[in-house]
Design a protein around this nucleic acid. Structure first.
Lengths: 289, 289
DNA sequence: CCATTATCATGCAAAATTGCATGGATTAAT
DNA sequence: ATTAATCCATGCAATTTTGCATGATAATGG
């Protein structure tokens, strides 16, 4: 029945990695193996199925028609394998192991960090890892176990929970003159980078201080706060961040900037994972409002 | 991110085999490996997922709750892996390789064998294997590439084709006295075994010769024919089988026994497999009516 | 145009995996 | 009760797989 040698399912993982990365070296790094191994395993796989899966072109490995035709199967296998692992991880009842979180930078630093410190005292066996990266980590691939962000999650397999409402305020370096609402001429602004121009607080600022000029942009709220504290300009910041900085002073323009709701999400399969549950409960007790 | 060591997808195949077979030894035989390897790979898998998948009971390995919970994932992975291989096999254009067929015993011997002999002369590179087993081989699992049987296939993924109508007749050892229709007292019968009592030719026989007694039963038409030829009793046989035996004589009761339609089926994914196509064309040319 | 930096293939030694043989433990049968 | 048959675990040797180092080739950039 087996035509040649039996196909190794593990080699499908290598097939997928090469298909995605395009070269043996990158695929090897992705899987924590070496380039010669990738090349050899791929050859074994191609022998087993009796067909070339990739074309060796001058710029890397590109799928042949045959390879492209079966890519979908390999992808579905990967999904099932990930689900297999997630579902088992979700049943772990011990309070130790790893826990990987993802949030925005300021939220991680000013909101999460104190809670995580307390959590570490309560459950020293859990190794918590917090990633304040702007890229989105996948809950499905288990790149993160718990994600904090300012929009609810729409994937069906993710459990999404409203955590808290965060108020924002306009700040300036203490002692500097405050601008007038509706004007803002002469004032300079520290704002999110252009990719975030559609955000409500940016619109509010433009409306309240139409004459102000953009002095500095950053995707990092802490960087914005720091520049604001050094007198570079006005900044709309989350109050948990701004109120805690002695060098900053709140500016009242008669109308509050819009607030935001922060959501927390985790994969359905992990809902009974004891250490995730424990952290979630603590986060809710300390932060929810 | 990886909790312990990364899970090997190939170990899922071992997990499946143990779940199905119940013991390491049987699972090993199924996969062409050894019992110690099965035990060791399973341990590695359980370490990787951090959970016991089987309970070691006195009568074999039985799934724990955790193992049962993820069995479905492993099964779907297997399906995708089989589809992966089938789809690639279906693209093979060379006229060599293996081809595995399945049919009933008499059909294989009297109808298929001559065609297969011719096919072998035309395409000596193809290794044909014919299984005349009563058990049903799975086209999905590729236990067989082409199946001949007397009912159409209902799975959506199987291409089913009406091959030919086979006439049946009542036979007796040449020279022995023929029974009379509607009676049959004193006559003895050679029929299919009891599992086949619902078949049309058995009903026909009971109606035409109600007084005859069942002398011998077998699930094998060739065995029936042989006993009939030795004078044990009357038998309803496919005419391609009965007419070719000199020791047999057709008995005319004024009404023909019901015939049957033979169907040929193969998996959609293999429809472009050159060697399958070639054999199918020859079979149709020689047998279809 | 040469230097640099990628890429993949291959020889070789180290490491990991496998199979074989065996032992112990349990169940079934005589 | 004793034999026979399974089944799993483990030590050990043989095989296989892997990683490292190197070389060959091609694209890239100064």
């Amino acid at each position: 029945m087996a035509r040649h040698a039996a196909m190794e399912w593990s080699d499908l993982r290598i097939f997928l990695a090469i298909a995605r990365e395009g070269t043996l070296g990158k695929a090897a790094r992705k899987l924590g193996q070496t380039q010669p191994t990738m090349g050899r395993r791929l050859r074994v796989l191609e022998d087993a199925v009796g067909q070339a899966l990739f074309q060796r072109t001058s710029d890397g490995f590109v799928l042949t028609d045959e390879g492209a035709a079966v890519l979908g199967h390999a992808e579905r296998i990967e999904e099932e394998a990930l689900a297999f692992q997630r579902q088992l991880a979700g049943r772990e009842q011990q309070l130790d192991g790893d826990l990987r979180l993802s949030s925005s930078d300021w939220f991680g630093l000013h909101m999460l960090a104190p809670v995580l410190a307390e959590f570490k005292r309560l459950h020293p066996g859990v190794a918590v890892e917090l990633l304040t990266d702007s890229r989105l980590y996948s809950l499905s691939r288990r790149e993160a176990d718990m994600v904090f962000r300012i929009a609810p999650f729409d994937e069906a397999e993710v459990i999404s929970r409203r955590l808290l409402h965060v108020s924002y305020a306009l700040y300036i370096r203490a002692g500097l003159p405050h601008p007038r609402a509706g004007d803002g001429s002469g004032a300079s602004l520290v704002t999110m980078d252009t990719a975030f121009d559609g955000m409500p607080d940016v619109a509010w600022l433009r409306r309240m201080l139409p004459q102000a000029t953009a002095a500095f942009r950053s995707n990092n709220r802490d960087v914005q706060a720091s520049l604001c504290a050094q007198g570079v300009g006005l900044a709309v910041l989350p109050r948990p961040l701004g109120d805690g900085m002695a060098e900053l002073e709140r500016v009242d323009l008669g109308e509050e900037p819009p607030g935001r709701i922060t959501w927390v999400g985790y994969h359905r399969d992990l809902r009974r994972l004891a250490r995730l549950r424990a952290l979630l409960d603590l986060v809710i007790a300390r932060l929810a409002n």
